[in-house]
């Protein structure tokens, strides 16, 4: 048992078991993969643990984006509204909503739990607080988030180029076809 004085000065007699589990999950997330043990425990301290039931919304489309979520266990569907089209399904160790770490603009889709889910929220105001307290760690994280978003942008550009080439190909035979006809 910790004495009141030990508690006052933040002395921990034994490492929290759930703390180790969280660190193990965090090291698999690209944003945190290069962080030291001390830095990981700094991140762990600002994460919010939340539990969601099957069918419950984690966030909703068009509401302000506040940050990202990491799935510890369960399945999450990313759904477009109002059509209800599911654009992606995420599982243990996946993360989503990371654009919200940099930008407060509205969410582009709804995230809904498909089973009972335990997730960790990592939010913009906590990241800003971290940047103020420990700028080196803050910059590392912002840089990783920027790289991930950059990689996604490159991928989107490639897809857009492939689609536009496809479109050109489709237009060409149609035009020659109409001349012949």
């Amino acid at each position: 048992m910790t004495t009141p004085w030990a508690r006052a000065f933040g002395y921990r007699t034994q490492k929290d078991k759930s703390g180790n589990e969280i660190e193990a999950i965090l090291t698999k997330i690209p944003i945190f993969e290069e962080l030291s043990k001390r830095e990981l425990s700094e991140i762990e301290r600002i994460l919010h643990r939340r539990d969601y039931e099957d069918g419950e919304s984690i966030f909703r489309q068009d509401e302000p984006a506040l940050g990202m979520y990491i799935i510890q266990s369960g399945e999450v569907a990313i759904v477009l509204e109002p059509s209800g089209i599911q654009v992606s399904e995420l599982h243990d160790g996946d993360f989503f909503g990371e654009v919200g770490l940099l930008d407060e603009s509205p969410r582009s889709a709804t995230a809904r739990a498909k089973t009972h889910c335990r997730v960790f929220g990592f939010f913009q105001p906590d990241l800003f607080g971290l940047i103020e307290r420990d700028p080196r760690l803050g910059v590392k994280i912002v840089l990783r988030v920027a790289r991930i978003i950059g990689a996604r942008l490159r991928k989107t550009n490639e897809q857009a180029r492939a689609l536009s080439e496809e479109l050109q190909k489709l237009k060409r035979p149609a035009r020659t076809g109409s001349r012949q006809g």
């Binding site: 919010h48 939340r50 419950e56 939010f123 105001p125």
Partner: peptide, 9 residues
């Protein structure tokens, strides 16, 4: 849960 992000914000 429903009011979590709102309250945090």
């Amino acid at each position: 849960n429903r009011y979590f992000e709102f309250s945090l914000d």
